[in-house]
């Protein structure tokens, strides 16, 4: 089997790429893309740990996969709400640049 750290390093790289995207981009949709990449990296970690490390109790032997499924569902909900917010902001303020959306800043 491929050593577990290989997967962890790939997931870490993917997470950091997503983090950079979420922190450095101007466009709100690009920020959401970065967040999706980060969620994917976390899921990859969960499935890798499920495959390589045995849980203490045998009834929890699919916990990693179940957790990954829930994360996928939450990511879908997050994407739908996030993109709806972006479209709502675009309608009212004619911009998707997060630096122009400073209503709550003083």
């Amino acid at each position: 089997m491929i050593p577990l750290p290989f997967y962890l390093v790939i997931a870490a790289a993917l997470f950091c790429v997503g983090l950079y995207g979420a922190l450095a981009r101007r466009n709100a949709i690009a920020i959401l893309i970065g967040i999706e990449l980060m969620l994917n990296a976390v899921n990859l970690n969960l499935v890798a740990f499920w495959r390589y490390i045995k849980p203490a109790s045998p009834t929890m032997d699919l916990a990693g996969q179940v957790f990954a499924l829930f994360v996928v569902t939450l990511a879908a909900a997050e994407a739908a709400i996030g993109l709806a917010l972006v479209i709502a902001i675009y309608r009212s303020r004619d911009t998707v640049n997060v630096e122009d959306v400073d209503l709550m800043k003083w």
């Binding site: 950091c16 790429v17 983090l19 950079y20 922190l23 450095a24 981009r25 101007r26 466009n27 690009a30 997060v98 630096e99």
Partner: peptide
């Protein structure tokens, strides 16, 4: 530009 002004800091953090 597609990146905001703090992109170097973001790169360092990542």
């Amino acid at each position: 530009s597609a990146q905001n002004s703090q992109w170097i800091a973001a790169l360092v953090v990542a």
